[in-house]
Design a protein around this nucleic acid. Structure first.
Lengths: 135, 135
DNA sequence: GCTTGACCCTATAGTTGCTAGAGGGTGCAT
DNA sequence: ATGCACCCTCTAGCAACTATAGGGTCAAGC
């Protein structure tokens, strides 16, 4: 399989595959006579794994860790669970942060579509000192 | 006010303030004889605005836009509302994406803390093809 | 046999929003 | 006069790609 086919098969850009190789997530593959990268099923599986983990929000470092763990199938599974659980906690923190932003922003929007910027609640919210001292 | 005082007053790092200047969010301030940046209340207000907007998750581009709108207080307020609403939509999309990740991840965690990696549900989830073809 | 076009190669720079470092100058107190 | 905290500019680094420049390869069509 050439890199373009692998890219289509995994919904990945060609440049990203080469980037993963440079980043040590994919081993340098065999080359054809014309110096083209040549991939087989193993690489397809490995890249699918990487993409799925990335879709779930794992960082490349975490993916590297998961790949190392997945490669050693006799290891106890607790280490994998630890990576995933810590990532889950990170995601939950992000959701909480964004929810707070959303609530603050929603509170401010929609009150002054017809007024002028000078009376705009959004702007006033962003200007705590000036907003508090005026009027 | 010297840059360090402004930094403490706005809970911003000195380097970040200089970065905002380079990025066009803060105008180049007056200088002292010794070539130190010298700030007044206007800059303090402007930087507070920027920090607050950043806290609410606005990008630097969006902050630039909001600053331009805030500077022209006779403009109708709809443009401000548009920036904020579109940002709110972005945040809500992110929350939805992260919630889906969280659900998928939570579904997979916790089932195999005692087993081996070869039987690990997390790893199997990440390896869709191999996971589906085994057993 | 030769050209066209799609594909591949390497190497480098750009993106966002900072942060950190090198290598120096300023200003005040002791 | 010397130590120290602070300031200056310039450059490089982070994540995780993406894009560009400037080439080489390969199969098909004329």
């Amino acid at each position: 399989m050439k890199i373009g086919e692998l890219a289509r098969a995994t919904d990945t850009k060609v440049e990203t595959i080469r980037y993963y190789e440079g980043a040590g997530l994919l081993a340098p593959p065999a080359r054809t006579d014309g110096n083209y990268r040549s991939y087989g099923t193993d690489e397809l599986l490995r890249l699918s794994f990487i993409r799925r983990a990335r879709d779930l929000g794992f960082s490349l470092d975490e993916v590297r860790e998961l790949l190392a763990l997945a490669d050693d199938r006799d290891q106890p599974c607790g280490a994998v669970d630890a990576v995933a659980s810590s990532h889950l906690a990170t995601i939950e923190r992000k959701i909480a942060d964004l929810s707070q932003m959303r609530d603050e922003l929603a509170r401010v929007i929609g009150g002054c579509r017809l007024g002028k910027v000078g009376d705009c609640k959004i702007i006033q919210t962003l200007e705590p000192l000036r907003g508090a001292s005026r009027r």
